[in-house]
Nucleic acid binder design. Sequence first.
DNA 1: CTACGAAATGGGACCGGTAACATTACTGGG
DNA 2: CCCAGTAATGTTACCGGTCCCATTTCGTAG
Lengths: 336, 336
Amino acid sequence: MGDDARIERSAGVRDVAALAGVSPQTVSRVINEHPSVRDETRQRVRDAMRSLGYRVNNAARTLGTRRTHTLGVIASNAALFGPSVGVVALESAARSVGRWVTTAYADAADEASIEASLDHLLAQGVDGVIIVAPRLDSVSSLARRHPTLNVGALPSADGARAQANGAGLAVGHLLESGHRRIARVGGPGDWLEEVARERGFADALRVGGLDSLAASPVAHWSGDWSAASGAALAPEIAAAVRTGVGPTAVVVANDQMALGLISGLAAEGIRVPEDLSIVGFDDNTDAEYYRPALTTVRVDTDGEARRSVAEVLGLDATGDVAPPRLVVRGSTSRVR
Amino acid sequence: MGDDARIERSAGVRDVAALAGVSPQTVSRVINEHPSVRDETRQRVRDAMRSLGYRVNNAARTLGTRRTHTLGVIASNAALFGPSVGVVALESAARSVGRWVTTAYADAADEASIEASLDHLLAQGVDGVIIVAPRLDSVSSLARRHPTLNVGALPSADGARAQANGAGLAVGHLLESGHRRIARVGGPGDWLEEVARERGFADALRVGGLDSLAASPVAHWSGDWSAASGAALAPEIAAAVRTGVGPTAVVVANDQMALGLISGLAAEGIRVPEDLSIVGFDDNTDAEYYRPALTTVRVDTDGEARRSVAEVLGLDATGDVAPPRLVVRGSTSRVR
DNA sequence: CTACGAAATGGGACCGGTAACATTACTGGG
DNA sequence: CCCAGTAATGTTACCGGTCCCATTTCGTAG
């Protein structure tokens, strides 16, 4: 292109202003889409920006405004589908409203680790923080300790409600299939999503005419979302099934625990779905290829992410959030 | 002078300087660990910083230095274990050397999408960019178009070599188990990791005394890393196995494709490992709970990430990288 | 004791936008 | 046609570190 080989310091607002014949302030107004700029002026400035290859300098802008246009995301355990997908969805949602995302991974079970991640994000300066798959008290606790900070969560309160409904769908499917002894394998009890999914499960059972007694012989099993933790529960669950009065179906809190559970049950000689029906939650991309293919609940993570971002930034929500949906595959069958 | 109760703007270098009785410049030197500061002075400044709760303002610093201390990461498809784990490892590695990470997700197969992500990162200003699981030409192509930018990859060139060795381990295991007709299911051919794993596979076959002829009847199968793509290959592979002169073992380019393949093969009536041994790659957290549990190759992603970060930032590498390791489970058996 | 180079420190200007306020150009009502 | 009120634009200083360069202090050889 140009053979004037000089180190061109990238153009600034003043350069653009000079070329467009306006003041730097007007250029700034154009950048920020301030309404009080005549269309013709705006166009002239835009042209100048283009011909100079102008790019806003985020640092300068931040220095002046004290707003970084950056969203901090604290996520945990990337070996889990849920959080991974959530982080991607958040990044996409944030970018679509002109924000950057800085991510810090932490061990969600360890409050100190979360605090360290938050410190890291605060040092950089972020306009808000979203915690992915938070523990129950993480959000309120952080909000309390950093009153000036916008703290949000994925899922949001609305998202949690949706997940409760999703858990209800799973129960409904099992009831329709003739199951009456339905147990549940939960996640860690102090996680927001676990609480929602558990509540949805319990409510649906009650509505179906089965109170908690229906699940009484099976107690409450729970893991840590990992396949390993699902597998670890297999012996106990297998024993319950063998009694003949144990559960005929289990609603598991996420797909990966379901995977582990099925694997462990196989080792115990319990067949799925012949001896026990299993429903997962998330519908991760692999669930269809588990053996048997997993019946599970799909949630609209992208929609949820958009909602969470909008909430934290105080914007109007963009786009709808699809309600959760049951995906029936091979891990559930009618009760014999 | 007048001490009106005004909103306490967080302390800056000038405040610290005043309290410590030095110039702002000296405070700056302390912040940046410049050697030419007397120990006693340094200590005085540090004390002042602490007592004022001083925190560097990253934006101001960036504006002055033109360095953001931020690393950009471009990753693709978070539904895959490999990239997800890689991103986390990079974040951790970067943080441990005092950098922030801004992530942008892109569809790696779509050059335009990568370019858009890069634009996004450049607008923020990053000191370097690391592409996770890059296509073969992505890195060099970006480096060419943005000559001033530090571009790196995960895995690095060394990491790719290690993966080649890992693929060799898989082949070695199969040879020892008596397999002689060994096929391979690759990833997308224009991906760095695919090239490395394929090369390791081919080299090991040759060293084992089997040239490419051994694989000739099985052609070259490949997918896109997803379980779905693995499942899609099942009919064709099943047909080859049924001929009786097809492969007795398959080395698959990653665990998730192996999962899909096994699922698809089951539908075709091919049993793993009785009729066909299968080796995966990655050893993701779920592989142990696939059915059968997957024999696979584990790589040291954390170590690789540290190496990539150090490379891009021009630092000395910290910590060793563990060599890849074969994990033998139930998806492989001795040939009958 | 002097001289001189290195070490330690200080003094502005400056990075590139933007807030705050001032100014000028328009609009419509009386 | 004047004036208030709003729209459009300009002026100036400032955000908070750091760069460059000047200055002072120190160590030590001559």
